[in-house]
């Protein structure tokens, strides 16, 4: 058993070195080897057998998955992130009292919250949030994500964008960039409903484009229904036309018939 553990820690050391060198291909290969090795330890989930080295093995395994999550962020692979995170989560919940707390725990939990936010999985976001203690909610990493969600729901988008400068952890930048794109789409959606007209300059500032050309390209690609003329952007076309005054006869007939049928049943 000890020999296996030693081999594991050695491989893990190599993996960590590759990660620091940003040599992602090597790191990914080493990681899959490590995961295969982890399956041989019976002290790990889902068996949780109480072997003599259990605590040590659990700790190493947790460390490995933490680094796996970080690797997935660096390689910008959201699916891998999700997979690794779910494997890691057991170490934070089920064997919490058997291990010393990890320094990486809150940053990674915050990162996961951010991921759910970026993928617009708000229901899961809140489900995860319920699992956290009030002490965890005070942690800057978690708080960051929670506040982002609030600002996002309220519509205070510049607060969301502003938050990019105050990221609590360097790994957060990737998701914050993704979030910026989502925010831009949201702003565009709101603008076309709220404004009749915006000058090109204002629109460019509001949608956070560095130049007019990029704004026009964006409009052409994502919002062809916007009209650009006289140095301004007009949203008239995007708004729905006046409600038609026609009587929805078919629907009414259906409803009346169903009432008649039900009444017949009663009488």
């Amino acid at each position: 058993m000890d020999a296996k553990l030693n081999e594991l820690t050695q491989n893990f050391g190599r993996f960590k070195a590759a990660l620091i060198r940003n040599d992602f291909d090597t790191a990914a290969n080493l990681l899959s080897d490590l995961k295969v090795m982890l399956t041989e330890f019976s002290s790990l989930p889902p068996l949780y057998q109480d072997t003599p080295n259990a605590a040590k093995e659990l700790e190493v395994a947790r460390d490995i998955y933490e680094h796996a999550v970080l690797l997935s962020v660096k390689t910008e692979d959201q699916d891998a992130f999700e997979r690794d995170f779910f494997q890691l989560k057991h170490y934070y919940t089920d064997v919490r009292n058997r291990l010393p707390p990890s320094t990486q725990e809150y940053p990674i939990l915050g990162l996961n919250l951010l991921r759910l936010l970026v993928q617009n999985r708000i229901a899961e976001f809140h489900t995860e949030l319920e699992l956290l203690s009030s002490a965890a909610l005070e942690n800057p990493c978690i708080k960051h994500a929670v506040e982002l969600e609030q600002s996002f729901m309220e519509g205070a988008y510049n607060r969301v964008l502003h938050a990019r400068q105050t990221v609590p952890h360097e790994t957060y930048v990737y998701f914050m960039d993704l979030l910026a794109k989502t925010v831009r789409d949201e702003i565009a959606g709101c603008s076309e409903k709220a404004y009749d007209y915006l000058s090109i300059k204002d629109a460019q500032k509001m949608l956070l484009f560095p130049s007019e050309r990029e704004l026009l390209a964006y409009i052409n690609e994502d919002h062809p229904e916007w009209e650009v003329k006289n140095g301004g952007v007009y949203f008239q076309k995007a708004k729905e036309t006046a409600p038609c005054k026609e009587i929805p006869s078919l629907q009414l007939i259906n409803q009346t018939l169903s009432y008649a049928r039900e009444l017949e049943r009663i009488v």
């Binding site: 309220e154 519509g155 000058s199």
Partner: peptide
């Protein structure tokens, strides 16, 4: 209470309009 209340208010109003909570238009200029 935010560092830039007017900009916040503007985007909040814009979102409320889009979600159909209020029926209004904004004049940015």
């Amino acid at each position: 209470d935010s560092p830039n209340p007017v900009a916040d208010a503007e985007s909040i109003v814009a979102k409320a309009i889009r979600d159909g909570a209020i029926d209004a238009t904004l004049d940015h200029a």
